[in-house]
Design a protein around this nucleic acid. Structure first.
Lengths: 230, 230
DNA sequence: CGGCATCCACAGTGATACTG
DNA sequence: CAGTATCACTGTGGATGCCG
């Protein structure tokens, strides 16, 4: 992409990572860690292969992504974030926080990967009962089961399934997310197609730090501005 | 732009404000407040007028920008951020924080507006001597003078010039910024074309909360990750 | 199979000119 | 002042092919 040619930190950042797909590539590498090319293609449904190759080169030149040739047993190229790339976590976090209210509607035909819920759960959620025993919830939203654990006040998310989870939550992503964020009541969720097996009380071990409202539910009151005494 | 079609908060956010120029329009409205169309053009050097019109419509539809027809004495259309648009402040802040190290080099032919320094100064800087008397520094970097005030522990920035500032700082943007962030020593700055009149000690009233390093100066040590027990 | 490069149709971009 | 209109150009997305 053409540079904005502005001497401004925001413009410079956008020069580096403002291209289409660039920040989503960063998201993937943040969530999955080291990735093969095809792993990235799987996590970025719809990306054209030439574009992915282009962006990876670009991000490499910008010092955000590094490329390494894995040793013999794997024998493939691995892409991973550099430290400078890891520094993009706050950007991803705030973008995700701002975008979260846009997920309140069904999402029907949109692409979804179960591990994407790692982002909101680990960034904005916590366990309000840190003194309680660790609990494990298996979440099934389609492509692969995920394990959500509440332990020591934190929420951890892993891929895989447990042999004996405290609860199993099955349903479409938007309902599961709505339930965990308490935008949707349990009864309503059950009516709309969520299935919950096991102990329903463990859901109380998952709390959001910032309850995202629907974007239209915002009032027009005055809010803090950066500047300008106008 | 085409939607990414992903059920992911980051992707949804980028669907709304990931287009070229969109976030820079938000930056302008955050810094300047209500803007006329031509004010935006002035603050976004190089934007094509049809693109600006397109983006404003888009941002309006996304609930980020509102358009109002100012009453008779002004009789023009004013654009301003909605509350939902103001919520983008953390995104702008983190993008700017990440991009700040990219400003360490000269910047020569790049466009610059003096009021852009409001962003870093008010977001990442503070007055380390809140009990001290208020001080005012007039900063001249080209197009218009700015007033930087340290008072009550905070840095405030306004347009305009003072009749009796404690100091006057004149020079190219990258050197002035380097000086204020302490990436550049006063002596070096003076040698490279900065002029400082008045009391040099007032510069100690401006401190950065996060000292941005040069991006290449980063080590390759391990850093916190979002996730993945790998 | 993994990691691209090439080709093509088309949507988005940028410069300029023009208008109510 | 706040755009719209036009047009050359570039970036994007989809398909396919290549090569170790």
């Amino acid at each position: 992409m053409r540079s904005y040619g502005e001497f401004c930190a925001v413009a410079k950042a956008l020069d580096a990572i403002g291209d289409r797909w660039a920040l989503l590539i960063v998201r993937e590498l943040m969530l999955v860690g080291a990735c093969r090319y095809t792993d990235l293609q799987h996590g970025l449904p719809g990306v054209a292969t030439n574009l992915l190759a282009d962006r990876l080169r670009q991000l490499e030149k910008a010092g955000v992504v590094s490329r390494e040739l894995a040793p013999p047993p794997i024998a493939t190229t691995l892409f991973r974030l550099t430290p400078r790339g890891q520094d993009l976590l706050p950007v991803i976090r705030e973008l995700g926080r701002w975008g979260a209210p846009l997920l309140s509607e069904a999402g029907g035909d949109e692409a979804f990967r179960s591990y994407w819920i790692t982002l909101p759960l680990e960034l904005y959620y916590y366990d309000p009962t840190p003194e309680g025993p660790p609990v494990t919830i298996e979440v099934r939203m389609g492509d692969e089961p995920m394990l959500v654990e509440a332990v020591d006040g934190k929420i951890r998310v892993r891929r895989g399934s447990a042999k004996d989870p405290d609860a199993i939550l099955t349903g479409p992503p938007w309902l599961v997310l709505g339930l965990l964020s308490r935008r949707v009541e349990l009864q309503d969720a059950l009516k709309q197609g969520v299935d919950l097996q096991g102990d329903a009380k463990v859901l109380n071990r998952v709390r959001s730090t910032s309850v995202p409202e629907s974007p239209s539910a915002r009032t027009a009151e005055a809010r803090p501005k950066v500047s300008r005494t106008k």
